[in-house]
């Protein structure tokens, strides 16, 4: 089944890209979920859409654009993350208010740019739901670059991020530069979202960051285990979703997310079964 993906150039790029995002999206998603910031991913993905629409608009206006839609999506996503942080400090008592503001702002901007770029087309459809064939060589290299950056940064800042995620107050008191670490984290999220959009699409990118982690939470005893299980679930969903999407001519965003949901339901059921059996054995 997989041979098509290794045979054709355009599929090969897609395949490698999906392996990369199957790694980095759940990896960063673990921190996102335990910090109860899952919705942040949704807000940023919609801002990324605005950036992508802007990129498409630029392509339309000036046929050879100096920035690809994925790259302009990244720029918007990072700017959006800065705004959310800003709003978090302005509305201290309403920490989550930045999320709906940025989300609706992102959609609003997207609509404007889409209209300016003369409306919907297949390209935009691909960005919304992901695509098997849309990953260009430039996209692949951009995403590879981001994936390496994310893995290296997480490797170096693992203990700081874990300390911050477990207990923000303690982290600050113990002398950690909590604000800077948090900021670094948000920017990484923005990059990973923009990178993942090519495969899963704007509307489903947050699912790839949260569903594998939700499944892993059923089994993980430690944070390290959570990361490993999340990546296994994430990679499985991405690869199986991509291949089945390709053979059924369905945008992979849909198949990937549905497989992740099946994995989640399976995890819940299996974990229930295991803990019931353990209880019986104890009796």
């Amino acid at each position: 089944m997989i041979e098509h993906f290794l045979q054709f150039d355009f599929l090969r790029h897609t395949f490698y890209t999906s392996l990369l995002i199957g790694l980095i999206a759940p990896l960063l998603g673990t921190f996102l979920v335990v910090r109860r910031l899952s919705l942040l991913a949704d807000a940023l993905s919609h801002v990324t859409l605005a950036g992508i629409a802007f990129g498409l608009f630029m392509e339309k206006r000036f046929t050879s654009s100096w920035i690809t839609p994925i790259q302009s999506g990244m720029v918007f996503s990072v700017i959006g993350s800065l705004f959310i942080e800003r709003l978090r400090t302005i509305y201290k008592a309403y920490q989550e208010i930045g999320i709906p503001i940025i989300l609706s702002g992102g959609v609003g901007l997207s609509v404007i740019f889409i209209a300016l770029a003369n409306g919907f087309n297949t390209d935009l459809f691909n960005y919304l739901f992901g695509s098997v064939s849309a990953v260009s060589r430039v996209d692949f290299l951009t995403i590879l670059f981001i994936a390496i950056g994310v893995v290296v940064i997480l490797f170096f800042f693992y203990k700081e991020l874990l300390t911050l995620s477990f207990d923000e107050e303690y982290a600050t008191v113990s002398g950690l530069h909590s604000k800077r670490i948090h900021f670094l984290f948000i920017v990484l999220i923005a990059f990973v979202i923009a990178a993942s959009i090519r495969i899963v699409g704007v509307l489903l990118v947050s699912a790839l960051m949260t569903l594998p982690v939700a499944s892993a939470l059923r089994f993980a005893k430690s944070f390290k285990q959570l990361i490993v299980y999340s990546i296994i679930f994430g990679e499985f969903a991405v690869v199986a979703g991509l291949i089945s999407g390709y053979y059924m001519s369905i945008p992979p965003g849909g198949t990937i997310v549905m497989i992740a949901i099946v994995l989640l339901i399976g995890s819940i059921v299996i974990q229930k079964f295991i803990s019931n059996r353990q209880r019986k054995e104890q009796k």
Binding site: L162, F166, S174, L176, L217, K221, F223
Partner: peptide, 16 residues
């Protein structure tokens, strides 16, 4: 619900 072991939590005391 935070999936951390006692060991991991105590390690956080050494982060800084």
């Amino acid at each position: 619900g935070f999936p951390a072991t006692v060991f991991e939590v105590v390690s956080m005391g050494l982060t800084t």
